[in-house]
Write a protein that binds this DNA or RNA. Structure first.
Lengths: 196, 196
DNA sequence: TATTTTAAATCAAACGTTTGAACAACAGTT
DNA sequence: AACTGTTGTTCAAACGTTTGATTTAAAATA
């Protein structure tokens, strides 16, 4: 196998398996079989199954870093929130496994939660909080709003939509065709809900 | 050990363990040890670990059935939605483990997902959808609203607040003292967002 | 007596990890 | 060009441990 194909193969094959079954739900044999490599390669490249899981999570959560750019943009506060919602939707569409790791670590945390997941989530929430506070000082929003409750409400509306998909697929159309309508719908409720 | 104390002890001890680590994260020996009973009691009463997990999930999700009563009440549509939010908050406060099973099954589904979790969630969403549709016909809400997107947005605001707690506890005050304020906050955003 | 609970032992299967040999590519030496 | 040692990679096999489940016989309880 050429160069570091093997290492890449392992990570690529591990993503959907870890996402679907969690760290404890997959065996090294299953991982190695899916990547079509010898099972000792996992210890060789990652120091063990947990090391591989950590590498996968690091790669998955790296994309959240881009959200921090939103706060620095020279646009309206509400446009920043819309940009956050749009980025969230396109992120989940591009990577269908990210939300699984997200909620799996929130619900059944491994050692990676404190080192990788929690810091990443805190950064996003902090960015949204700062954006909101800035909007408050510009007198855009009603001043009896709680910053944390407000931004978590916004994040909840869009994230919960994707989280619920496995259970409500027969009840609600979750196709990407509706994404644009969904985004405008959420921003519509949010805007009317928080503006003066 | 008297009567069915043993059976009850096993379930009671299993709830926090399964909630924290998932089905695959706990061994029968750990479960029996936590319940302070012999390990053979799990096979005796539940036919094995998965049977115990199924029994725990059935018990946990039984409380969701009470939500269906809301739709039949002779109250305003918005009051029904507020009742749903209030019931959700008090449910999570009374049982801190329910949300873990909820999201754990949504993210890393076991055999119980199709039989227990999915039907329970669908019933709640269907109840909210019916409530909303009824409100639409009474011309309470803006008529360009999508029913599914609207009720999932409401559910997302309150559920995501609790889901995010492990990651944002240092950033946001999640104490029950704030629950009343949180409920009014969410209903405030939602009401302004959907009313004509 | 019948049911429930215990402790201990046993089972096959699966687990994550380690091993030592084999292999290829390459550099330095002769 | 031929040999040698090094380095990084891959492999099959085996390691010791733990897993979930079952069984046994004795004890406790009703």
């Amino acid at each position: 196998m050429a160069d570091n194909d093997c290492r890449e193969n392992i990570i690529t094959a591990a993503i959907p398996l870890f996402a679907a079954k969690g760290l404890n739900g997959v065996s090294v044999r299953e991982l190695a079989g899916a990547a079509d490599v010898n099972l000792s390669m996992i210890s060789y490249y990652f120091g063990g199954k947990e090391g591989l899981y950590s590498a996968v999570l690091t790669e998955q959560f790296a994309v959240l870093g881009k959200l921090e750019e939103i706060e620095q943009m020279e646009i309206d506060t509400l446009q920043k929130f819309e940009l956050y919602v749009r980025a969230t939707v396109s992120r989940y569409r591009k990577n269908p496994y990210l939300l699984r790791f997200y909620t799996s670590e929130l619900t059944n945390p491994t050692a990676c939660f404190e080192t990788i997941v929690k810091p990443a989530i805190k950064k996003v929430v902090q960015m949204l909080l700062d954006t909101f506070t800035n909007g408050l000082s510009h007198e855009k929003f009603r001043d009896n709003l709680d910053p944390a409750d407000t931004v978590i409400a916004l994040a909840g509306m869009i994230n919960f939509y994707f989280l619920l998909e496995p259970a409500t697929a027969e009840l609600v159309d979750h196709s990407p065709d509706r994404d644009e309508k969904l985004i405008r719908h959420i921003m519509d409720i949010f805007t009317r809900g928080v503006l003066k």
